[in-house]
Amino acid sequence: MAETKIDTEIRHVTLPGSNLFLEVGFPPDEAELLHTDSQQRIKVALLLKEQLMGELSDWIAEQHLKQAEAAAILKINRPRVSDLVNKKANKFTLDALVNMLARIGKPVRLIVG
């Protein structure tokens, strides 16, 4: 059987802060609107994550837990607790943070509007 070759060549790199929508071919006006909207959504998600991470970090401190103890309760590994305490928001999904809060008896309520 012939071996299938997978194409892994990098043909383009989008620089951080660039408008991806412009690069993929949207008209400039629309690309700017989409870029601005996406940046705002990212900002809101990061703020939510940071708030949830703050609750978890506070709980760990209040309980005087070592990272390994917190990891066992939260069902994550110890390095992830470090990421949590250091508020590395890009390493967690909102779902994961909500689930961790539920595990410690702090259910999250979402209010829209």
Rank of each mutant, 00 (worst) to 15 (best):
S18K: 12
I60E: 01
A72Q: 08
H12C: 07
L20E: 04
E30M: 12
K91T: 12
Q40L: 08
F21E: 02
A96W: 04
L65W: 14
F21C: 10
E55P: 00
S18Q: 15
L56M: 06
N99T: 15
T36A: 02
D7F: 08
S57P: 00
N19M: 15
A89Q: 11
L52T: 04
L84Q: 05
A71D: 06
I104T: 10
M1L: 15
Q67I: 00
F92T: 10
K5M: 13
R78C: 01
N90I: 04
H64V: 06
F21T: 09
E55L: 04
D58T: 05
T8W: 10
V81F: 09
T8E: 10
D58K: 03
I73E: 02
L22W: 15
P16K: 11
A89S: 11
D29T: 06
E32H: 03
Q40G: 03
E69W: 03
A89F: 08
L46H: 02
G25H: 06
L15R: 11
N86I: 07
L46Y: 03
L48I: 05
T8N: 13
L34G: 13
L74A: 00
K66D: 12
Q39Y: 02
T93D: 11
K88S: 09
A102R: 13
V81Q: 10
L47A: 14
Q67V: 00
I104A: 11
P28Q: 13
R78V: 03
E62G: 00
S18A: 15
N86V: 02
S82V: 02
V81T: 02
M53E: 00
R11V: 11
I73K: 07
Q67S: 05
K5H: 13
G105T: 11
L33G: 10
D29Y: 06
P27L: 09
G113C: 11
D29Q: 08
E50K: 13
W59V: 05
G25N: 05
M53A: 01
R78A: 06
I10Y: 11
G54R: 05
L20A: 14
T14L: 13
Q63Y: 00
S57N: 02
N86L: 07
N77L: 04
V108S: 12
V108M: 09
L34P: 08
L84P: 03
L34E: 07
V81E: 06
M53L: 08
M53T: 04
T14C: 10
K5Y: 12
L47S: 09
M1E: 15
H35E: 08
E9W: 10
H64C: 05
E69G: 00
P28V: 13
E9T: 15
M53P: 00
E69C: 05
L46G: 01
G25E: 06
L84S: 04
T93W: 08
E30P: 07
N90S: 09
Q67M: 05
A96N: 07
G113P: 13
P16R: 10
R41L: 08
T4Y: 10
A2T: 06
T4W: 10
V112D: 05
K49C: 00
M53V: 03
M100K: 14
R11L: 14
P79Y: 03
K49W: 01
I42S: 07
L84V: 05
N86K: 12
H64Q: 14
T93Y: 11
N99C: 12
V13A: 07
V13F: 09
G54I: 01
N99A: 15
Q40W: 09
I76Q: 04
L46A: 03
V85K: 12
R11G: 04
L110H: 14
T8Q: 11
